[in-house]
Design a binder for these strands. Structure first.
Length: 493
RNA sequence: GGUCUCGUGGCCGAGUGGCUAGGCAGAGGUCUGCAAAACCUCGUACAGCGGUUCGAUUCCGCUCGAGACCUCCA
């Protein structure tokens, strides 16, 4: 089977490259998932949606994709005054919970958020805590290869000796000398031979709750090891695409590269993809800055910076309307704009269902699928593909108004194109995700009754009753839309 | 300080050496009992200053400004 030329921007080469899978028709994709010690915020939605798009599009192209996205439940070290305390462990102690209880709680909530964003589940979602053995094995291999050393029950990666044979810093474009200058006093710094050395295995202090036995004593795996170990386990020692946020490029991914080379003797990853950050007031939204808004707060509008609640689909569309390598600035205005645009797009899809073909067409839309496809083949350029779809929206409306005519075959092409791109690839749906299926059914039943009563009132020119119903419904965020063929309604939060 | 991005019309955001995306807002219009919704029409913007070029928003240099990474971060 031949695949069309997909161009992917590779962070390693800093340019777009033609995607050539290692083992067609298979494609391996690994993405750094969340550390589950808090609710996911808008920033977490970016890689989730971005690589969901990659996942969906690769499948659309005919690849058999294995998508691995990990859950980090061992926690990374805190580098503040807490002397190397594990994030998960810290949260656990504060809340008087078992560490795994915290992990379970936030993992479940993460899944709920992802479901609402219509992010497909990855093929495998491995947990770091479930792969301690694999990580220990990898540390052993790196030690045997001579690229690590043991100090005091901890194992450190020896960047200096690694750099003699390989190139440490090739992903981030840093030199060892620079890192020397920029280093600062951290826990364990005295134990390291070089400031850039990083922990593969860390000895657990007495108060540390999360700990596992190892050849070097009780401890826990280093910050970067889990991704190397788990990607190798599920995708092999060489695989196609590794993704994650730009902020992980250094040191996390740089260290992953070093670990893989040290352990396997070659690079593991062919294409590195990095999504850019979401900003708020021009600044990165992030945990450390405390300027984040959780997805749940968006869904229910409870954060004080929000002027209202936003549907999950609005957030998804907002993200897709920007290219994944650009920063995306959040504001209420921008989100509202996205929501309205999305509604227009979905509304046109409805209209499309009812159009009829003509034998004397005045428009030609047969090129649309190729335009959308080409945009996506060019480094997943969803905003351009969406722009093409909006051009088609204009045509759809014109046909609907009787101003233009479309051929039956073009109509079929249009329907397929919207189904394929809007629904399958962009994962945008019009279904209301706020209420459960049961409640939704009841609501639409009630609305039918109410609108029928209102229709009767209007027939009798009883405008007072008609307007009263309309206004009352509006207060419940239900918008009544009077059209030529009667009224319809919509939830507007 | 080091490494690196970016600066597009009121807002969000694509893209390109010449043919000047798209969405939202705004203005006008169609429809409507009114309104809303829906639909149609309308905007030559690319930080500043130089340079290369027949021609630059797009290439180069400088200035100014913003941001990311260098420490956990998506």
């Amino acid at each position: 089977m031949a695949f069309p030329e997909l161009h992917i921007y590779n962070s390693l080469s800093r340019k777009k490259e033609v995607f050539t899978p290692l083992n067609p028709p298979f494609a391996g994709l690994y993405v750094c998932g969340p550390t589950v010690y808090g609710d996911a915020h808008l920033g977490h939605a970016r890689p989730a949606v971005t690589f969901d798009l990659v996942f969906r599009f690769l499948k659309h192209l005919g690849f058999k994709v294995r998508y691995v996205r990990n859950i980090t439940d061992v926690g990374h070290l805190e580098n503040d005054a807490d002397e190397g305390e594990d994030k998960i462990a810290k949260k656990a102690r504060l809340e008087q919970l078992e560490p795994m209880e915290v992990v379970q709680y936030y993992t479940d909530r993460y899944h709920q958020d992802m479901d609402r964003l219509n992010v497909l589940k990855p093929s495998i979602e491995p947990r770091a805590s479930g792969h301690i053995i694999e990580q220990i094995e990898m540390v052993k291999t790196i030690l045997d290869a001579g690229f690590a050393y043991v100090v005091n029950g901890s194992v450190y990666f020896d960047v200096t000796s690694y750099h003699e044979k390989y190139h440490y810093g090739k992903l981030s474009g840093r030199s060892l000398e620079d890192m020397m200058a920029g280093s600062r006093e951290l826990d364990g710094q005295q134990e390291k031979k070089h400031p850039a050395d990083f922990a593969l295995w860390k000895k657990a202090l007495p108060g540390h709750i999360m700990r596992w036995p190892s050849p070097w004593g009780e401890g826990f795996p280093g910050w970067h090891l889990e991704c190397s170990a788990m990607s190798a386990k599920y995708l092999g020692q060489s695989f196609d695409i590794h993704g994650g946020g730009m902020d992980l490029l250094f040191p996390h991914h740089e260290c992953e590269i070093a670990q893989s080379n040290a352990a396997f003797g070659h690079d593991a990853v062919k294409y590195w993809m990095h999504n850019n950050m979401i900003t708020i007031n021009g600044q990165k939204m992030g945990k450390s800055l405390g300027n984040f808004i959780t997805l749940r707060e968006f869904f229910d509008g409870s954060h004080k910076a929000l002027t209202g609640a936003y549907q999950a689909m609005t957030i998804r569309f907002f993200i897709l309307q920007a290219h994944y390598r650009s920063t995306l600035d959040f504001s209420n205005e921008a989100l509202e704009a996205a929501g309205k645009g999305l509604r227009r797009l979905l509304h046109a899809m409805d209209t499309l269902k009812n159009l009829e073909g003509s034998d004397t067409p005045t428009v030609d839309v047969s090129g649309l699928p190729q335009l959308c496809r080409n945009a996506m083949l060019d480094d997943f350029n969803s905003p351009v593909a969406i722009a093409h779809l909006f051009d088609a929206v204009k045509t759809i409306n014109a046909v609907n108004d009787g101003k233009e005519r479309i051929s039956k075959s073009d109509l079929e092409i249009l329907r397929n194109c919207f189904d394929t791109f809007v629904t399958d690839i962009f994962g945008l749906t019009g279904k209301d995700d706020q209420a459960g299926d049961n409640a939704t059914g009841v609501i639409s039943g009630l609305m039918e009754i109410i609108l029928e009563l209102r229709r009767q009132a209007r027939q009798n020119k009883d405008w007072e009753t008609s307007d009263k119903l309309r206004d009352a419904l509006q207060k419940l965020n239900i918008l009544v839309k009077d059209g030529k063929d009667g009224a319809s309604w919509e939830m507007t939060n």
